[in-house]
């Protein structure tokens, strides 16, 4: 059984990433359950996707303390989901923060270094991906989610290979964006392999 949490901000493609993971698992003959928690806003809110792969699963939601992997499209969102991570679990996270507009209003401050410190204190297996760099290389800000999936394919726990994810991308996404997304997937995998961890 594998439990994953995907955390991001509305508009980053968190839900799509969870669909790709689920499709890759189904292609391997595995059973899947997924669910999302999305707020009322169309964009800009916290989005959490739960993905569960394996037999005898009932709940679509992952329980606290049981996630094998957190995929964070944004550092503070990854940290928000930390209570889901089990001991010894892994985090793959993009290094770029997304500021909410409330950060400019009084009484809503947060410190980036404290967020990194807390992540590092609670998880020993973190891959930090320079998602911005990969997006620049691909020429689109929209492939961050796919780059993170690529990075996650290096985790042994995931049990899905880069090839599995490539196939899911080709099945689910429209053809005209296949090449850019496959590029992002591969760049994500490479950057994680190089161990570009910033902690």
């Amino acid at each position: 059984m594998l439990n994953l949490i995907l955390a991001g901000v509305g508009g980053q493609g968190t839900v799509l990433a969870s669909k790709l993971l689920a499709q890759a698992a189904i292609n391997r003959g595995l059973d899947v359950r997924t669910a999302e928690t999305i707020g009322m806003a169309q964009r800009g809110g916290s989005v959490t996707s739960h993905v569960r792969i394996g037999q005898d699963l009932y709940s679509p939601l992952v329980a606290l303390d049981t996630a094998d992997i957190i995929l964070g499209m944004e550092p503070s969102e990854a940290l928000r989901c930390l209570p889901y991570l089990k001991k010894g679990g892994s985090i793959v996270v993009s290094s770029k923060f997304i500021k909410p507009f409330t950060a400019s209003l009084p009484g809503s401050t947060y410190e980036e270094n404290l967020i990194w410190q807390c992540l590092g204190d609670h998880c020993k297996n973190i891959s930090v991906i320079d998602g911005g760099k990969i997006c620049d290389a691909c020429g689109s800000t929209k492939v961050l989610n796919i780059a993170l999936l690529g990075a996650a394919s290096n985790l042994r726990q995931l049990n899905l290979t880069l090839v599995d994810l490539e196939k899911a991308v080709q099945e689910i996404l429209p053809q005209k964006i296949h090449s850019i997304n496959l590029q992002a997937l591969n760049l994500g995998a490479q950057s994680a392999r190089k161990g570009e961890t910033a902690l």
Binding site: I98, S108, C118
Partner: peptide, 9 residues
């Protein structure tokens, strides 16, 4: 957890 960005709708 340290203070996190608030993302109200």
């Amino acid at each position: 957890l340290p203070p996190l960005p608030v993302r109200p709708p």
